[in-house]
Amino acid sequence: MWTLLQHLWLLEWRTKYRFYNSLLYALSTSFIASLVVSRYPGVSVWSGLMWFLMLFNSITACSDAFRNEGERRHIFYRQLSRPEDIFFSRFLFHGLFGLLLVSLQFGLLCFFIGAPSAHWSSMFLHILIGAVSLMGVLSLTSAIAAMSGNNVSMMAVLSFPLLIPVLMIGLEGTLQAGLGDSLQQAWKFALGNTAMGGLVATLGYLLFPYLWNA
């Protein structure tokens, strides 16, 4: 599993395609946001915008996760490693990538339209937890979309209903944190999304082998 994770990082490091793609995406969406939203728009608009951009950016980042591998490499992977390991390496890779991505997005949005509130650090924590859960759901749905041999639109159709729970819990938590609730008060939202992430990991562990072994 660690070898696979290293392998994924290496592949990414060689081309840096996905990184630059997401960076450009985050940069341009934040810039567009600064054009349409006034500076210091208030907590609810700010966090709504943040989660919205995060949702689309993570879908774009994950949509080609399983597709850029040809048939031959698929067989190669299958002989070398267990499907659970493949899923977890993807999950970890996407999770780490998601952390990086939302940190970038958060920083850029702060730069362009100003920090959301004085409690930005606890908002940031909620967003980080949400990002890992989002990426977890996307790892499995991108695998399903790729195995069904379909395009990006299928990815969006499959992911949106399943992402909305994570999004709603995360958004609510971010709002409460931004309005000044300490982590002791908003802990249940953070816990809710952590539980979602755990659930997704368990389901992926159980279901991925069936998807993988065609």
Partner: peptide, 10 residues
């Protein structure tokens, strides 16, 4: 079937 199980539990 995989999607059904995943969706239902979530």
């Amino acid at each position: 079937a995989v999607y059904n199980i995943f969706a239902f539990v979530l």
